[in-house]
Design a binder for these strands. Sequence first.
DNA 1: CCTAAGATTGAGACCGGACTCACATCGATT
DNA 2: AATCGATGTGAGTCCGGTCTCAATCTTAGG
Lengths: 372, 372
Amino acid sequence: MSSDGARRRDVTVADVAKAAQVSKAQAARALGNYGAVSDDVRARVLAAAEELDYRPNELARSMNTGKSHTIGVVVGDIENPHFGLATRGISDTAKKSGFNVILINTDENTAAEVDAVRVLLDKRVDGLIVAPASSVETQHLQRVHDSGRPLVLLDRSAEGLAVETVAVDMAGISYESTRYLIEAGHRRIAFISTLRTDVPYSEGATLDSSQISDRLDGMQRAFRDAGLPAPGDLVRLNAGDAESIRNITREVLLQPDPATAVVASDGLIALSVVETIQELGLKIPDDVSFLMYDDFAWTRLTTPPLTVIAQPVYDMGAAAAKALIRQIEGRPPRAARPEFSAKLILRGSVGVAPAAAMGSASAKGSLEVQAL
Amino acid sequence: MSSDGARRRDVTVADVAKAAQVSKAQAARALGNYGAVSDDVRARVLAAAEELDYRPNELARSMNTGKSHTIGVVVGDIENPHFGLATRGISDTAKKSGFNVILINTDENTAAEVDAVRVLLDKRVDGLIVAPASSVETQHLQRVHDSGRPLVLLDRSAEGLAVETVAVDMAGISYESTRYLIEAGHRRIAFISTLRTDVPYSEGATLDSSQISDRLDGMQRAFRDAGLPAPGDLVRLNAGDAESIRNITREVLLQPDPATAVVASDGLIALSVVETIQELGLKIPDDVSFLMYDDFAWTRLTTPPLTVIAQPVYDMGAAAAKALIRQIEGRPPRAARPEFSAKLILRGSVGVAPAAAMGSASAKGSLEVQAL
DNA sequence: CCTAAGATTGAGACCGGACTCACATCGATT
DNA sequence: AATCGATGTGAGTCCGGTCTCAATCTTAGG
């Protein structure tokens, strides 16, 4: 309990003005630090404000400046460290420029996303950073853009939406890593993703996610360039919870013409896949090779450590925030936005494909491993 | 570009009223769904709103209702999956009750926390959930409480602050797990935490974090009950970045009277500790036993899988949000708040202490391991 | 047919700041 | 000493809603 009781009404400029014996306008000027105010008045007002423990009502302030100094961030799943890190990048950057972050989780559900965007707009955020759940259903984002509210997309792009987008060149890294797997003798490469789709995957089908579809494009191109048929039957989407990932993993590894390598689309999937592989008593990389997107610290602790595709997630979050703030402040967008690129980090989870190993006398066990 | 151009001023109730040919008051009533409105007027207003694509300005609304339907969440580090999960629990629960979440990261820095709280208050959030960086420097939280703004603490309590707190019984689980280690023959148990302190740890010193100090109390009590001296010299605080954790780990393991078991205070620390142990060529659990707080999925993937102290983080986040919302809505706090309790999950990283192993002929390798 | 309770409705105050505008004040200019 | 641009200052409006209050309309009861 402070000296003079608790939970009384908030102190307003008017109160301060009265205490300082000046007009509301003058008090507001002194407090808001604008306009012309004599030293005498300023001192009195500031003293009164201090005395009364005055705190400006940002809501009121926002209402007539039109700026809320708040940006809205809409992601699929904060629980996923990928977004955790990205969010950290965003919020660190935002804070540096005096912006706050309202975070909304969509569970990768477009309806929830539409809602989130609406709520954020209603709250008059100064701008939005969205990792769209769908690259196809984007009317709500289109509307945001049309309304003139700054918008930056993260991780995935939206079809036909000319909006600044911070993402890595997925097709490129996917091509590169697939080639790496192909060179290790793998022909049967499974790709497992949580992406929800109605129809089972078939080559050429348009997917809801630019990110996944770019990855698949990269894989296909790698196979094509190698003169090999892409194993479309091993592309498994709709991997939802741990149980379904487990089932899918068993399927692709135990079926007649099984996968010799598995690519996990994100860290959450990777956990279940690796766990299932261990359960099946299979050894990585002797029996199955494994590759995953995102380089989390724990991937160095497994035996063997996992070969991963590292994405500069924090930096991307930071870049998205920077780009957004630039838009908010009306500065022109960066001429050449930096393309973020992912890196294939070779550790120990990719080995020579079992069948190929028989053919080549030299290769055995894991491929050359790059330190760290 | 929508049919009628872009980026025009926002549509307001006044606009809708004009279009519907009714007074502003009536339009507001129809839109806000309060007061008495005839069916005819309601229909016209709703139609006009639809036509004009009217969206209420939540800022204006908040300003005179006094409610922002927003809660502020202040955590030390969203990047830490512990908080990621907790945040998820909070935001899921909040959303269900129509609340949004403004998230601020403090980097476990009290000054940043003070600032965060101020900003949130200025934004007139309806309530706050804070995981206090310090259990001692809590004047800012005290002020929040005094002002009557709902406040719930998460994870750690604040000294002398009678505020609803959602946390696990740390002393209890720490006691239990220490006893477990002691029974396995460990006498030299190291405890590594990021907690920043000015003075090096000494038994009895008051710490800045209720969480850590409870854990240490539990450890000490376990040693005392076992009639053994607590290895206070192995309590290592100030473990900041990966590098410093690495150094500390080496120290406690390589010094003359080394630790035979290491307890990592959180998942981030655990990563570096385990990595360092592996680097040193030591085997878990044969050479060193390892125990960590928080049960992350990856702890099941290492060899051996790690023995952990699982905390119901998501549920705690959800409970904190529920408690806060209850306060916001003026309902009485739950009579008996559920005590959350952590669970020791035995996997394979704790074994018989090397010295003790020599003594007992039977024990060798890891202790009995509980499935999952 | 008249009257009063109850339903509708519009004018305008209000929330807490920012900002416009007209009106001082004041030292400097000539 | 009269004039002028540069401050200072206070009254009052505005932002976009909510909400009070008095006026007007219905409609059922007498």
